[in-house]
């Protein structure tokens, strides 16, 4: 079983990287639907893989100088609080309810990943919170350092709290909600929001991983092939993404993801999970 889980996790990590959904969104349905793993073990293993992917990618991102550590740290207050809350909720509600919520978030994330990301204009007056918290920054572009301003900090903060709850409840990185908060609400440049979101994903997952560890949800024998598989898959996926035409691939993957979401909702409602 360990070998099969490792191969499946490699595929999940690659799929997560290629679709931009993240490994957690694929690994939890794979473990529960294909391998029949209890969703609590699946979420524990997924959280570990989310941290591995985030730290692995961040090591590369950090050198490029896009990550805004002040924005990230400020929003971390919301995501870590949310993650602890989500991990507690996970212990209170039924596994069927978790499966249904998971399928809804999966469907929403797949939908979001197909929406074109529009770069917002970066002019206009900044939010008063952004000024007080000195969040405005610069990032390197082809034409040199480009300044940007930050908007709608309270909205972004609230969305991040939601992202944290979902992360702690479902064992995912909640990349879709984080990007929504930073792209749409706070209107950060893509490169800044993508890398800052990645930084936050690892910290958020670490916040709920502690709670899951103490609850006995993290099984080492299941988590180790998942973690190594997803990490290798994500790194491979990032390489493929750099060179390939991904439009057609993404269409095929979206069909797979919609199928997973429907199957998970169906089994959840029938009480099969």
């Amino acid at each position: 079983m360990t070998g099969l889980v490792a191969i499946g996790s490699f595929a999940a990590g690659m799929l997560g990287a290629l679709t931009g959904l993240g490994g957690g969104m694929i690994i939890v349905p794979m473990l529960t639907l294909v391998f029949g793993v209890d969703i609590r073990y699946a979420i524990g293993a997924s959280l570990i893989s989310v941290i591995a992917t985030s730290s692995g990618a961040a090591a590369a991102y950090v050198r490029e100088g896009y990550t805004n550590i002040r924005i990230g740290m400020f929003l971390e207050v919301a995501t870590t609080l949310g993650a602890l809350g989500g991990a507690y909720i996970a212990g209170l509600i039924s596994t069927s309810a978790i499966a249904v919520i998971f399928s809804l978030v999966l469907a929403y994330s797949a939908y979001r990943s197909f929406q074109p990301r529009e770069e917002h204009s970066i002019d206009g007056p900044p939010d008063k919170w952004a000024t007080r918290l000195r969040m405005d920054g610069t990032y390197p572009t082809a034409e040199g350092m480009q300044p940007y301003t930050v908007h709608a900090v309270p909205t972004g903060f609230s969305l991040m709290f939601l992202a944290g709850i979902l992360s702690g409840l479902l064992g995912i990185g909640s990349g879709a909600v984080k990007v929504l908060a930073m792209d749409q609400a706070m209107r950060l440049p893509f490169k800044v929001s993508t890398t800052t979101s990645n930084f936050m994903i690892g910290v958020t997952a670490a916040a709920s991983a502690g709670v899951y560890l103490h609850r006995g949800y993290i099984d080492p024998v299941l988590a180790f092939p998942v973690m190594l598989g997803v990490l290798a898959g994500a790194l491979t996926g990032a390489r493929v993404l750099a060179g390939a035409k991904v439009r057609a691939l993404r269409t095929i993957f979206t069909v797979v993801i919609v199928f997973l979401a429907v199957e998970m909702a169906y089994k959840g409602l029938r009480g099969g999970i």
């Binding site: 570990i48 941290i51 730290s55 690892g202 997952a205 670490a206 560890l213 080492p220 180790f224 973690m227």
Partner: peptide, 10 residues
Amino acid sequence: GLLLLIATPI
């Protein structure tokens, strides 16, 4: 090993 991984973002 998993704990060390959790420790990196911390």
